[in-house]
Amino acid sequence: MNEYNGEIKKMMIILSKASLENVYAAFILANGARMEGIEAEIFFTFFGLEAINKKKLEHLHVATVGNPAMHIPTMLGGLPGMEALATSMMKKEMEKLDMPGVHEFLDIMKASGVKLWACKLAMEMFHLKKEDMYDGIGGILTVGEFYKKSAVLGSHMLFI
């Protein structure tokens, strides 16, 4: 942590989940890094792949079950329509804050120089092809290839 006095030069973010709150956390951290002149790359793995899956990315939901911060009983969180309700409420609040939707956010990150990578193993597991994914991704990588990209001083890695 002593290089550059601990200053962050590159953020390597691994997104493994597809609930809206996790996807936005990853996107805001990556975009926020670029805004500060910090390099940023996101590795989409497991369910995180949904955030760059063309068919799924506009239909991500907030998790209402197993999320104590929702302040509703877990039993109610599982009722039909609850996730949709919570998601639409959250999207309204985000729009007020001028937060883009998932697709537009991907476009913004791409234009800002955030590199987007799909995990090879997870792609195979979910039977996904590059054509199924958002056009702006840089490619499909193995874990080892992703690690290599982080091999610079001041690089930090984050798992979401």
Binding site: R34, M35, E36, G37, I108, A111, S112, G113
Partner: peptide, 11 residues
């Protein structure tokens, strides 16, 4: 956005 980053690099 892309041109903005190119014109004012590093934030």
């Amino acid at each position: 956005i892309e041109a903005f980053y190119a014109l004012f690099p590093q934030g």
